[in-house]
């Protein structure tokens, strides 16, 4: 097979149940080497449960799963040796320093100290943490802890890096730095699996993604494909005075391919948003504000589930 076509993670009817409750319901997906593959979905969709099965830290309830050509049921330790895992909540060793966290983690992988030391130094430099090498972990900022967790996940030079909500809870600056580092990793040929409920994160980082909702995968494709398939190119967001809302859907009829009525605004899906806005004005519909923007994965999710990604 040519590079990039090899399948690293293969799931068929993959299912996870917790004492009767189904967290992941017969999902199918394939992750290829060298791609950044996303799981986009709101809280409780089953993203973490899926990641834990891939990471072999949670047993598969039902269905088929293969990771790097191996079976998590019987070869968990061999698979884990070749994975990097960044859990949703950091679990750094608070009793060790930044550098010790990396060195000790290397020892868990049975990596000799002589190899671990230079590798840890490289990773700290890459994650811009070199100055903090001798510091304790606790006083680090959220963004730094996250970067250290990613550095730790890279200590065994994994073939597959699993990131569960890598930037949730971080401020915008810290998020952008992380995205930039992850993008660099991707360029070096790393295979990434990323879960997120931020559509901008999915659009920025993922070559392909699945949209997950209520334990199921509801759509799959590249961000561009998904937007083309489930949305229009542009969206006109309208806010109108309260008094105008009654009967407004009829007045807007025909101005867009599709119109969503949200509690605080209307979304008009149209190939040309400006033109739709002109027609709104032509029909003398009073507006408080109007914004034409490109369609995003948020619109795809809204279309598929009738709800927003982040409540």
């Amino acid at each position: 097979m040519p590079p990039g076509e090899e399948i690293l993670v293969h799931a068929r009817d993959l299912t996870k149940r917790f004492s009767g409750f189904t967290a992941v319901d017969r999902v199918n997906f394939d992750v290829r080497t060298g791609e950044a593959f996303g799981f986009l979905g709101p809280n409780g969709a089953g993203k973490t449960s899926t990641m834990k099965m891939i990471a072999c830290s949670s047993p598969v309830t039902d269905g088929d799963l293969s990771v790097i050509g191996m079976d998590p049921r019987t070869q968990a330790a061999q698979i884990k040796a070749r994975l990097g895992v960044v859990p949703q909540t950091d679990n750094l060793d608070a009793e060790l320093t930044v550098l010790e966290n990396l060195l000790m983690y290397a020892r868990y992988f049975d990596i000799p100290m002589s190899v671990a030391r230079p590798r840890a130094a490289d990773l700290l430099a890459f994650m811009q943490l070199s100055e903090r090498a001798k510091d304790q972990v606790e006083p680090l900022s959220g963004g730094m802890k996250r970067r250290l967790t990613i550095a730790r996940a890279l200590i065994n030079e994994p073939e597959l890096l699993i990131l569960d909500e890598p930037t949730t809870g971080l401020d915008p600056q810290a998020r952008h730095l992380l995205w930039e580092r992850l993008y660099r990793l991707k360029q070096r040929g790393a295979t990434l699996i990323i879960t997120t409920h931020y559509m901008d994160e999915a659009e920025q980082l993922c070559d392909r993604l699945v949209v997950m909702d209520k334990a199921k995968i509801v759509a799959e494709g590249s961000p561009r494909e998904l937007i083309e398939r489930y949305s229009t190119r542009e969206v006109l967001e309208l806010r109108v005075p309260e008094a105008v809302r009654a009967g407004l859907m009829e007045r807007l009829d025909g101005l867009a391919e599709r119109i969503e009525e949200l509690p605080d605004r209307y979304l008009l899906y149209a190939a040309d948003g400006e033109q739709a806005l002109e027609q709104v004005h032509a029909r003398e519909i009073p507006t408080e504000s109007a914004l034409v923007r490109r369609a995003t994965l948020e619109d795809v999710f809204l279309r598929l589930t009738g709800r927003s990604l982040v409540e």
Binding site: A55, S57, A77, Q78, K80, A81, L83, V85, P87, T89, N91, L92, D93, A94, Y105, Y108, F109, D110, N156
Partner: peptide, 11 residues
């Protein structure tokens, strides 16, 4: 502190 969770992600 969930140290065990971190360790069990390794072999």
């Amino acid at each position: 502190r969930r140290n065990y969770e971190a360790i069990l992600a390794t072999p």
